[in-house]
Nucleic acid binder design. Structure first.
Lengths: 115, 115
DNA sequence: ATAAAATGTAAGTTATGACTTACGGTAAGT
DNA sequence: ACTTACCGTAAGTCATAACTTACATTTTAT
């Protein structure tokens, strides 16, 4: 998949996000990742599978172990989606909100309005 | 709340993300938002409540209606969290991955992983 | 005053997913 | 060859959350 939807779904779970952040700090085998987490090793394997299918991590064999590392490119679609609302929308929001609040106040304080 | 976790949780659901995108296009009352979606109006109300608690939308009364509009500032923590991995990590990833693949090739050519 | 419109919430149902233990397969050590 | 370590997956349990209908509240219109 590796689209914005799968990345969002993957990162929404706190445990899985902890796995992602751990892998982001340094590449590590599954057992090491599970060491610092309050869930079992198979649970970590399942989380890594979801992260991998979302394009957020990559793995490679190292003997009997599998080393997982972050793939920051998987965050690209999500970041692009966010930027849709971040730039111009932020400025527009401030102006719109202010104008809207002025209207609301004018309606609320109708006993105090003049002109 | 209005932290990164709540924003991520809120935007992970496709229906709720559709509500968010609809509100982002233009402020609208609940009924109008529900018009273009395949779920009931109360469902939209519940989604809007989650989005509001995550700081992603704001609402104000307009007679018997409530107008919802996007609050792009709610995306701030999420964006900041993403940038943790986006900048330097992206460059480091390319170099690390290349080096790692060289090691893998040098040791053995049994790489069977692909997207 | 009554009715209608717009919305939020309560209650109940159901699907999904996060977790566990158990098991099978592969690689390394003795 | 046998044992140990590392890992992925299957099966089953359980909590959560997304949805529905029903109801209560507030505002507007007749």
């Amino acid at each position: 998949m590796a689209n914005m939807n799968s990345a969002l779904l993957a990162l929404a779970d706190p445990t899985r996000r902890a796995v992602f952040e751990r892998v982001a700090r340094a590449p590590a085998p599954v057992s090491d990742i599970a060491k610092g987490l309050p869930v079992s090793r198979p649970a970590v394997s399942q989380h890594l599978k979801v992260l991998k299918e979302a394009g957020l991590v990559v793995d490679h064999a190292d003997g009997a172990r599998r080393i997982y590392r972050i793939d920051p490119r998987g965050l690209g679609p999500l970041r692009a989606w966010l930027d849709q609302f971040w730039g111009a929308a932020l400025d527009a929001f401030a102006a719109d909100l202010e104008a809207q609040e002025l209207e609301t106040h004018a309606k609320d304080d109708k006993d105090d309005e003049h002109d």
